[in-house]
């Protein structure tokens, strides 16, 4: 299999499309509320947080959109060779767009956890991983490695904050990032990538359930 391709099993495209779309909606909601709070309070961390979630949301929207296209080519195209070439092109583009935006989103989220006002750190967190990913031969592996490192530090931050402040909302957020971390990290040690891709998506689904749970908790008085 081409290293540029996500190892999505063919039978899973339909579910993948729905899940990515659901993740895009959830992250978009979080970004929307962060931006609306930023408009009222002008707090920079909230702005960076909103940018982080909106780029992650866009990364899911793009992947979901291209999964629809791939589904179309899988079901409609009668010429196998044309279908495979088109699917590979779509998959490659969707993969690049996804890793580019997802990495940017994680860099912004990690930056907010540092409580640092100097933008030099943000540039470092953005440029170093993107350079490493796009300069490497195995894009997919390096992407999962870097996103795992970023998610590990984000999870660690929220777990530490929870143990200090004991806020149940922070526990849900900590669990969400922990599951996202596991969803990315397990990929690095996976042997059968197709099966583990599905398993990773289930972990990601659980992570976003925690985000929704926290959102429900925040919104209800």
């Amino acid at each position: 299999m081409d290293l540029l391709l996500f190892p999505t099993p063919e039978w899973f495209y339909r579910y993948d499309m729905v899940l990515e779309f659901a993740f895009a909606i959830v992250t978009l909601f979080v970004a929307y509320f962060a931006f609306s709070i930023y408009r009222k309070t002008a707090q920079r961390f909230v702005l960076f947080f909103g940018i982080g979630f909106s780029t992650i949301s866009l990364s899911y929207f793009i992947k979901s959109f291209f999964n629809v296209q791939i589904m179309y080519w899988l079901e409609m195209e009668t010429n196998y060779l044309i279908a495979m070439i088109t699917i590979q092109e779509l998959n490659s583009f969707s993969f690049f767009a996804h890793i580019f935006l997802f990495t940017i989103g994680l860099a912004f989220l990690l930056f907010t956890t540092f409580k640092e006002t100097r933008l030099r750190l943000l540039w470092f967190l953005l440029l170093v991983p993107l350079s490493v990913i796009f300069a490497s031969v195995n894009y997919m592996y390096i992407f999962y490695l870097i996103s795992s490192i970023y998610l590990f530090f984000i999870s660690y931050h929220y777990i530490s904050v929870y143990f200090i402040k004991k806020n149940p909302g922070q526990l849900l957020v900590a669990l969400a990032f922990l599951f996202l971390f596991l969803g990315h990290f397990h990929f690095l040690i996976a042997v059968n990538h197709e099966t583990f891709y599905v398993f990773g998506k289930i972990l990601e689904f659980l992570a976003y359930c925690f985000i929704v749970g926290n959102f429900y908790k925040v919104y209800t008085k």
Binding site: I37, Q43, F45, V46, T113, K115, N167, K217, V218
Partner: peptide
């Protein structure tokens, strides 16, 4: 919202 995501300055 801000407490849960630790966004306070």
């Amino acid at each position: 919202f801000m407490d849960s995501y630790d966004l306070n300055e």
